[in-house]
C-alpha cells in the first residue's frame, strides 16, 4: 500500500513525465496552428496566383514577318522572308485589376525587324547580255573585291515602342492581350549600290494569347518614311551634292511566339 502511494507520488512529481506532458501540449498547439495555416493558404492561393500572373510584365517576341515594301510609285519589292524581335515591358497603370481580371498598361521596349528581299527576278530576255566589249578585262577579269550581286537586298528597322495595352486574365494563367504601339524607327534599305536610310514611324497593333510563360500572337504594322541614299552621296565627288531621297512604304503582318517573364 505504501509502495503504491510512493509510486503515485513519484509519478505526480516526476519532472520527465511533466515535460512529456508539456511536449504533447505544445505539439497539439503546433498541429492546430499548421492545420489553421493550411486552411488559410488554401483560401489565399487564388490571390497569390493572381499576383504572380500580373508580375509577368516582360515579354520577348520572336516572329515571322510578311513585309510588303513599296516605293513611291507603288512598286513592291518582292520578299523572301522576314523576322522580327521585340522586348516589351508592361507598366501597369493601376494596382488592382478591374473586375479582378483586366488591367491597362503603358508599354515600352525595343523592336527590331529584318526582311530579305529578292530583286533579281528572271524573265525570258534573249538579247545581248553581260560584257560585250572587245577590250580585255582589267586585272582579275573585272571581278570586284566584293561580288555586289551576291550581297542581295535587305531591309532593317530598329525602333523603340511606346504604347498602351489591355490584358485580360479570364481563367487560371490564361492571358489575352491587345496593344497599339507607336514605334519611331530608324530604317535601312540596303541593296548593292544603294543604302537608303531614313526615319520610319511605325504604327503597330496586335493581339496575343498565352498560357503561363508561353503564347502566340499576331501583329500588324504600317509605316511611311523618306529615305536618303547614303552611298550615292559618299560616291559623289562634290561636297555640295544632294543625296537622292525616296519614299518607302512598309506594311507587314507578323506571327510570333511570346515568352513572358517576371519576378
Amino acid at each position: 500500500m505504501f509502495s503504491i502511494l510512493f509510486i503515485c507520488a513519484m509519478s505526480l512529481f516526476n519532472p520527465i513525465v511533466a515535460h512529456e506532458n508539456d511536449d504533447v501540449a505544445v505539439a497539439t498547439v503546433v498541429e492546430s496552428t499548421i492545420s489553421a495555416n493550411n486552411e488559410s493558404n488554401q483560401v489565399n492561393e487564388a490571390p497569390v496566383l493572381n499576383e504572380r500572373f500580373w508580375r509577368k510584365r516582360k515579354s520577348l517576341r520572336f516572329g515571322y514577318e510578311m513585309n510588303v515594301l513599296q516605293n513611291a510609285n507603288g512598286s513592291v519589292y518582292p520578299e523572301v522572308f522576314g523576322v522580327g524581335f521585340s522586348n516589351v515591358r508592361n507598366f501597369w497603370l493601376h494596382k488592382k485589376p478591374i473586375a479582378n481580371c483586366l488591367k491597362f498598361a503603358f508599354d515600352m521596349g525595343f523592336d527590331i525587324n529584318y526582311t530579305l528581299l529578292d530583286l533579281a527576278d528572271d524573265d525570258s530576255y534573249t538579247g545581248p547580255s553581260g560584257y560585250v566589249g572587245t577590250e580585255p578585262l582589267p586585272d582579275g577579269d573585272g571581278e570586284a573585291l566584293v561580288d555586289l550581286t551576291s550581297i542581295g537586298s535587305h531591309y532593317f528597322s530598329v525602333g523603340w515602342a511606346l504604347g498602351v495595352s489591355v490584358t485580360v486574365n479570364p481563367v487560371a494563367k490564361l492571358r489575352v492581350a491587345g496593344y497599339a504601339h507607336f514605334v519611331p524607327s530608324a530604317a535601312m534599305h540596303f541593296s548593292g549600290l544603294s543604302a537608303n536610310i531614313g526615319f520610319m514611324p511605325y504604327l503597330k497593333y496586335g493581339c496575343e494569347l498565352s498560357y503561363g510563360a508561353v503564347g502566340l500572337g499576331a501583329e500588324w504594322g504600317t509605316a511611311k518614311g523618306k529615305c536618303t541614299d547614303l552611298i550615292s552621296s559618299f560616291m559623289s565627288e562634290s561636297e555640295n551634292s544632294v543625296a537622292p531621297k525616296s519614299l518607302l512604304y512598309s506594311n507587314y503582318t507578323k506571327l510570333y511566339i511570346v515568352f513572358r517573364f517576371g519576378r
Partner: peptide
Amino acid sequence: VAIIDLPVPYT
C-alpha cells in the same frame, strides 16, 4: 563588269 545584273532600287 562588276555591276552587271546588279539590281538597284529606283523610284
